[in-house]
Amino acid sequence: MIDQRRRGFLKGVLGASVVGLTVGSGLIPLRAQAATDVADWPEKAFKTPGVDETIAELYGMEASESDQISLDLPTIAQNGAVVPVSVETALPNVTAIALLVAKNPNALAAAFDIPEGTVPFVSNRLKMAETTDVVAVVISDGKAYKATQNVKVTVGGCGG
């Protein structure tokens, strides 16, 4: 019983470090050593509609706008099934980056962990149901920042 609680607590602590709440504490090396498991997949965040709701679910905080995030994607996408999206940021101590598609049934498309020594950059291809805002969220120094760009989708990418 006690042991089970302890497991639960440890899992919670590890989870919290993923969302950047324990940045600067001694838990980070522990997190870096433990291999990420599918059990760490943020299921609830992936099943939440809406950008702000998803950021709150994923990182437990609100994101403020930042001009230090460069979000690179086409302004018009002829095929919503394959839209290349790149994010790069000059923000320091980045631990995570997430990509959200506002008008998709569930906003979260991908969430990345950025360990120490990894450049805060990612490029990925995403599906978009319709013309939408794309939001990049960056966790820097334990705080959430975001940048938004609109993309016009000619043919939606959720119908296969």
């Binding site: 394959v82 498309a109 991908a110 950025i114 360990p115 599906k127």
Partner: peptide, 10 residues
């Protein structure tokens, strides 16, 4: 690098 992907990835 760790990527958590959802079904919206192409």
């Amino acid at each position: 690098f760790v990527a958590h992907w959802g079904p919206a990835v192409s």
